[in-house]
Amino acid sequence: MNAIRSDIKELVIARLEVLPPNIKVSLGNMDFTKEQLVEHVKKEDDIGKKIVEVELEFIRALKEGEVV
C-alpha cells in the first residue's frame, strides 16, 4: 500500500476513536491501546497500514452486504 490518502486516514482515525478506552487489541505478538493504534495510522507504518486495510475492507463488506 502506498501513502494513505489524508481523507482515508481521517476516516480510519475517526472510526478508531470509538473503540472502548480500556481495551487492548493484539495483532500477532504486539498489543495496542486505542491511542497507539491511532498513532500508527498517523505514522503510516506497517501496523498503521494494516489497520487501514482492515477498516477499508470492513467498510466495503458492510456496503456490499457481506456483513450480517
Binding site: 472510526r15 470509538v18 473503540l19 472502548p20 478506552p21 481495551i23 487489541v25 482492515v54 477498516e55 475492507e57 470492513f58 463488506a61 456483513v67 450480517v68
Partner: peptide, 24 residues
C-alpha cells in the same frame, strides 16, 4: 459473536471489525 457485538450498539461493538477479519 460478531452479530452479538454489532447488535450491542455500545463502544464494544466497534471491535466487531476485528472479529470479522478473523472470520474472513
Amino acid at each position: 459473536n460478531f452479530t452479538k457485538l454489532l447488535a450491542g450498539g455500545d463502544s464494544k461493538s466497534s471491535v466487531a471489525r476485528y472479529l470479522w477479519w478473523n472470520y474472513k
